[in-house]
Write a protein that binds this DNA or RNA. Structure first.
Length: 488
RNA sequence: GUCCCUAUCGUCUAGAGGCCUAGGACAAUACCCUUUCACGGUAUGAACCGGGGUUCGAAUCCCCGUGGGGACGCCA
């Protein structure tokens, strides 16, 4: 791993001026642009930022980067907030909206213009396109050629009439920009690779790299934890920060999450809202645990609570390479957390999901009790709801199933059982005995009676332990359903 | 094309030069448990991308390939 050695040589966190020797209070931020829902990659970025702040008793800030007016929507803002709330990633400050900070940005741009660290550029978009095309034809990295950059002894052309200039940052032309990335180790860029990027558009609105820098500075962000795709922005942001005389925060760039098939996630392919996981019956703690473990590790630990995660979380055990999402493992974690979930909670979830199928649980058996029978047999909440369904709606076995299970011998057993059950003390152990005795008396092996019984009661040949099913269903319902068996 | 990042079982990962006969987890396979289906338990198979260095010793450090990814916008 490049720079692996130096990456580990870090002590306590100190501020940008080491000689202060004062541990700075950690401040992290999650800064999504509201152009869509919160997907799994964003959720992990948020989780890590949140955990880092929590770990160090710091502050976690939510900042909405909505300067792309054309693509930002209030619905997306809400979707992001909903997603974070579902996951329980609470922020301490914000949400701040960049569109509400325009005055501040204008002020900083004016200062930079006055200080000469930024300048007006009148190059039209068409000229820029032509320049880019030329450079690409020459197989060069396309970049602005500095034609409006003021230079000692250089005469600038007169500003063309009627052109609203953009503002460009005067990037250093020589030397290197380097930082110690908390995930990837030392990264450096030659300034000659960078160009004078636009910080304000023709209409005066500021652009991304500029807003980020002003906000990170104003919000005293100490640790920028964000996606890998921002590595290339970092040298520009550092240069800007330095032009502003602002301290440079620590950076930690998280590599991307690939889909189940190893392909890049996109809206067309696999990138779904975290709320879809709610929809699909996942527990937030399972998603959180899974995400925590995707790209970060603590030895061999696989299953842990968020409390534990916060105590363990650190930046130097984050993987530098991309990780492939594995639904199988998420499913396993989900099943695991389902087994631990309180019956009341499961009951509430199942009731809600059943209601959406038009099934009411009123007048049926106790939902929590039934849920208890199924919580270690299902993989998600939708499966739980499906499993509970026949307890609240009398089943109608298919013709094939009836033919297969309701044989003469079975029907005889069911009739005998019905009589015995009518007088039985309604308690699992005794119910189990009743089934066993009836089977023995009728010359049936246990499955030969228990399976038709399951079909009669639930419309399915499999179920939890038959005595538990009988108990939970209740005498009245059991007798009713037995009576309803064709020719029983 | 240029720049930047990256590489351990199918997947997520442990690994800080000797604790490595490379560990754990998911998945897979087998067996056990069992009134069905699951749960659970036990066991098995499965990896250091290739080539050069450095070193007594390399999964680990360096270089070069190769594969994968990202960026090159008046998007964020």
């Amino acid at each position: 791993m490049g720079g692996g050695q130096s990456r580990r040589c870090r002590g306590v966190e100190f501020g940008p001026f080491p000689y202060h020797r004062i541990p700075m209070k950690v401040r992290t931020r999650f800064a999504p642009s509201p152009t869509g829902f919160l997907h799994i990659g964003g959720a992990r970025t948020a989780l890590f930022s949140w955990a880092y702040a929590r770990r160090h008793g710091g502050t976690f800030i939510l900042r909405i980067e909505d300067t792309d007016v054309a693509r930002s929507t209030p619905e997306a803002v809400q979707a992001i907030i909903d997603g974070m709330q579902w996951l329980g990633l609470s922020h301490d400050e914000g949400p701040f909206y960049q569109m509400q900070r325009m005055e501040r940005y204008r002020q900083v741009i004016a200062e930079m213009l006055a200080a000469g660290t930024a300048y007006h550029c009148y190059t039209a978009k068409e000229e820029l396109d032509a320049l880019r095309a030329e450079q690409e034809a020459r197989k060069e990295k396309p970049r602005y050629d500095g034609r409006w950059r003021p230079e000692a002894g250089k005469t600038l052309p007169p500003p063309p009439a009627g052109v609203a200039p953009v503002v460009r940052f005067r990037n250093p032309v020589q030397g290197m920009v380097a930082w110690q990335d908390q995930v990837k180790g030392r990264i450096e860029f030659a300034n000659s690779e960078l160009d004078d990027f636009i910080i304000a558009r023709g209409d005066g609105t500021p652009t991304y790299n500029f807003c980020v820098v002003v906000d990170d500075r104003d919000m005293n962000i100490t640790h920028v934890i964000r996606g890998d795709d921002h590595v290339n922005n970092t040298p520009r942001q550092i240069n800007l920060l330095q032009a502003l005389g602002a301290p440079v925060p620590q950076y930690a760039h998280l590599s991307m999450i690939l889909g189940d098939d190893g392909q890049k996630l996109s809206k067309r392919h696999g990138a779904v809202s975290v709320m879809q996981y709610d929809e699909d019956g996942y527990l937030p703690e399972a998603v959180l645990n899974y995400l925590a473990r995707l790209g970060w590790s603590h030895g061999d630990e696989e299953v842990f609570s968020m409390e534990q995660f916060v105590q363990w979380f650190d930046l130097d055990h984050i993987t530098a390479s991309a990780a492939q999402f594995n639904t199988e493992k998420l499913n396993w974690l989900n099943a695991h957390y389902l087994k631990l979930a309180a019956p009341q909670r499961l009951a509430a979830e199942a009731t809600h999901r059943l209601a959406r199928q038009g099934v009411t649980v009123a007048g049926g058996p106790d939902v929590a009790q039934v849920a208890l029978l199924y919580r270690d047999r299902v993989g998600n909440l939708n499966e739980l709801a499906d499993a509970l369904h026949p307890y609240f709606v009398a089943p109608h076995p298919t013709v094939e199933m009836a033919a297969q299970h309701f044989t003469e011998a079975a029907l005889k057993g069911l009739r005998a059982l019905r009589e015995r059950l009518a007088a039985c003390n309604w308690q699992a152990a005794e119910l189990g005995q009743a089934v066993k005795q009836t089977a023995a008396e009728c010359g049936l092996k246990m499955p030969q009676l228990a399976i038709p019984l399951r079909v009669a009661l639930l419309g399915l040949p499999q179920s939890p332990s038959i005595d538990a099913v009988l108990e939970v269903l209740g005498r009245e319902r059991v007798l009713q359903r037995l009576a309803a068996v064709p020719s029983a």
